[in-house]
C-alpha cells in the first residue's frame, strides 16, 4: 500500500456533512416532538429555545474557550432591548429584527470580550459579573429606552415573510424559533470544528502551547466572544419577538447564573451538551415548579448534585458512560 493510498483510504474527518444533517434532523425532530406533545404550551417552548441560544452562546466562551463568565445575560438582554426599541420604532420585519438582535449581540459580545478576556480566573469572573451588573443597572435607570422595572412592552412584530402572523397560540413563533435554532446550531457545529474553533479549544487546554504554534490568544478569544454575542443576540431577539415584552430579568444576574447551571448540567464544551442541559433544566423547572411550587428548587438542586456526582462532564457524557459500563459488564460475563 502506498502512502497516497493510506491517505485516500482513510475515513472522513470527524466533522462531515452527515453530522450537519444529523443536527438538522435532531433539531427538527425535537421541534416536532415539542409541537406534538405540548401544543398548548408553545409559548414555553419558544422561550425555551431563546434561552437555549443563550446557553449555546455561553458554551462558546466558557465551554470552548475556558472563559469564566457570570454576566452573559447582558448580551441577551441588551439585544432584546435593542430589538424591542427597533420594533417600537416601526421596523417590524421579524427577519430584520433578528439581524438587529444579532448585530447588537455582536457589539455587546465584542465589548464584553475586550474587557473580560484580558484577565484569567477570579478577576475574569468578577469582571464579567461587573459588566452584567452595570448593564442591569443601566437597564433599570434608562427607563425611556427599557421601560425600567415595568419592562419594555408593546413589541409587535410584523408578519413573517409578509405572510405568517405571530398568532396568539404561538405557532408561527415556535416554527420560526425552531428554524432559527436549527440554522444556528449547524453554523456553530461548523465553527467549533473549524481551525478557528479548534484553536480556541487549544487555548482553553493551554494558552502557552497555543502561543508556541503562533496563535494570537487575545484577539481569538475576543472574536469568539463576538460570535457568542451574535448567538446570544439572536436568542434575545427571539425572546423580544415572541413574548412582545422585555423585562429587567433578561439582563439579570440570575439569568446568567441559570444559563451556567444549564451548561454544566448538559456538559460544557459540547454544543449537544448545551442543548440537552437547557432542555432538561427548563422542562424540569417548568413542570416541577408547577407541581410543587415550594420545593422545586430543592429538587433542581438534587438533580444538579446527582449529575455532578455521577456524570461530572454533564448529561451529554452519560451515553458514553453507560455504553462503557455495559461493555465492561458484558466482558465480565463468562
Amino acid at each position: 500500500m502506498t502512502d497516497r493510498a493510506i491517505v485516500d483510504g482513510m475515513s472522513p474527518p470527524r466533522f462531515s456533512v452527515p453530522l450537519e444533517l444529523r443536527a438538522v434532523a435532531i433539531t427538527l425532530a425535537l421541534g416536532a416532538i415539542g409541537y406534538t406533545l405540548f401544543p398548548e404550551d408553545l409559548a414555553f417552548l419558544t422561550r425555551l429555545i431563546s434561552i437555549t441560544l443563550l446557553v449555546l452562546s455561553l458554551d462558546l466562551v466558557t465551554g470552548y474557550c475556558g472563559v469564566a463568565t457570570l454576566g452573559h445575560a447582558a448580551i441577551y438582554g441588551v439585544s432584546a432591548y435593542v430589538v424591542g426599541n427597533a420594533c417600537l420604532a416601526g421596523h417590524s420585519d421579524p427577519l430584520l429584527l433578528l439581524l438587529v438582535g444579532a448585530m447588537a449581540g455582536a457589539v455587546m459580545g465584542l465589548v464584553s470580550g475586550v474587557l473580560v478576556t484580558r484577565f484569567k480566573g477570579l478577576p475574569q469572573l468578577v469582571l464579567s459579573i461587573a459588566v452584567g451588573q452595570l448593564i442591569a443597572a443601566l437597564a433599570n435607570k434608562l427607563s425611556s429606552l427599557t421601560g425600567g422595572s415595568d419592562g419594555l412592552s408593546g413589541i409587535s412584530p410584523g408578519r413573517l415573510f409578509g405572510v405568517y402572523a405571530f398568532d396568539m397560540y404561538g405557532r408561527t413563533g415556535y416554527v420560526f424559533s425552531v428554524a432559527v435554532l436549527m440554522v444556528v446550531f449547524v453554523v456553530l457545529l461548523r465553527i467549533v470544528h473549524s481551525p478557528f474553533g479548534l484553536l480556541c479549544q487549544a487555548i482553553k487546554d493551554d494558552s502557552l502551547r497555543a502561543r508556541m504554534i503562533g496563535a494570537r490568544v487575545y484577539p481569538r478569544l475576543v472574536l469568539m466572544y463576538g460570535v457568542s454575542g451574535v448567538v446570544g443576540g439572536i436568542g434575545g431577539a427571539l425572546n423580544a419577538i415572541n413574548t412582545g415584552v422585555v423585562g429587567l430579568d433578561s439582563v439579570g444576574f440570575e439569568r446568567s447564573a441559570e444559563a451556567l447551571v444549564m451548561l454544566v448540567l448538559g456538559g460544557a464544551g459540547s454544543l449537544w451538551g448545551a442543548l440537552i442541559g437547557s432542555i432538561v433544566f427548563q422542562v424540569f423547572e417548568h413542570y416541577v415548579s408547577a407541581a410543587n411550587p415550594f420545593h422545586w428548587m430543592t429538587m433542581v438542586g438534587a438533580l444538579l448534585i446527582a449529575v455532578v456526582l455521577f456524570a461530572p462532564k454533564g448529561l451529554v457524557s452519560l451515553g458514553g458512560l453507560l455504553a462503557g459500563r455495559t461493555a465492561s459488564v458484558l466482558r465480565r460475563r463468562p
Binding site: 470527524r14 479549544q201 487546554d205 497555543a210 508556541m212 504554534i213
Partner: peptide, 23 residues
Amino acid sequence: YVPQTRDIFRSLTVEENLVAGLK
C-alpha cells in the same frame, strides 16, 4: 518549537490538534 514535553492539546483528537495548527 517542539518542546521536550511534547505539548499536545489533550482535549483534541490527533486530527483536531493538527487542524488547530493549520493557520
